[in-house]
Design a protein around this nucleic acid. Structure first.
Lengths: 134, 134
DNA sequence: TAACAAACGTTATATTATAACAAATTAAGG
DNA sequence: CCTTAATTTGTTATAATATAACGTTTGTTA
């Protein structure tokens, strides 16, 4: 019987460590550049690791930026509900962890008869710093 | 004095009409293929039109699909707050217009000190049809 | 009608992502 | 331990998505 993978493979660990140490979201080819000294040579190796890391809930994809960020919420085991704040000026991205918000969205139902088990929300605005400088 | 554009240009009209007649979101190169008979030959012409149409609130980009869909909400003049439901099985996409939801999200504030003026929300699940067939 | 902004056309190229195939590694059951 | 199946890896090639740079044309307005 095949079980859900527990342990990360070598390439997955390498890619994850790069993303975790980054200050913000990283793009796939920027990750590639960063891991070439560690033996990962091809885009596909990076994309495959990214795919597994997303499935494992270790990272999230910021869709509007095609970039990847580490999940800092330990309870986000399988990341089906994600929310981010994105600064339009400095591009700073932060995952929003707000239980009211996630409850609200997890329970949201419109008249379509559709029950949503997964969502991704991206907020845009100016962060505190950038607001002051304006 | 420069004013905000009121009238759509020729290429913008062509691209918009294709998107409006489509049953679902269209990808840029699929749009390109569809408009080649009308004289638009290059990707850039499509992307430029798409950019303006988005600014004008006539269409939205479904970020998770890199695809474009017409805005059917006449009051969505400048589309800063968008929400969609996406079926994981048949890929059907529908814009969600729910005033409670939009009010909730427009007023949402976390402890980051950031005030959000724009958001994009994408819900995933199985639509009514696909749920029945499972 | 001069001046400026916006849109257009075109070529080239950058960026993001996947297909296909074979070899190596890992996990689990007998 | 050995076999089998699944997963991961390595590699080359290519598909799909998007923008840069340039010069021309069109439209608006003072």
């Amino acid at each position: 019987m095949t079980q859900k993978q527990e342990q990360l493979s070598k390439n997955q660990q390498i890619v994850l460590s790069i993303i975790e140490r980054a200050k913000g979201p990283l793009k796939a080819y920027s990750i590639l550049y960063n891991v070439q000294k560690r033996g990962i040579k091809a885009p596909l190796q990076v994309y495959r690791a990214l795919e597994k890391l997303i499935e494992a809930g270790k990272i999230h994809k910021i869709e509007s930026k095609n970039a990847f960020i580490a999940c800092k919420n330990s309870d986000c085991e399988i990341s089906k509900t994600t929310a981010f704040s994105i600064c339009n000026n400095c591009e700073h991205v932060k995952e929003i962890k707000n239980s009211k918000l996630s409850k609200y969205l997890s329970n949201f139902a419109d008249n379509s008869g559709m029950k949503y088990k997964k969502y991704n929300l991206e907020f845009f605005g100016l962060c505190k710093n950038c607001k002051l400088k304006q």
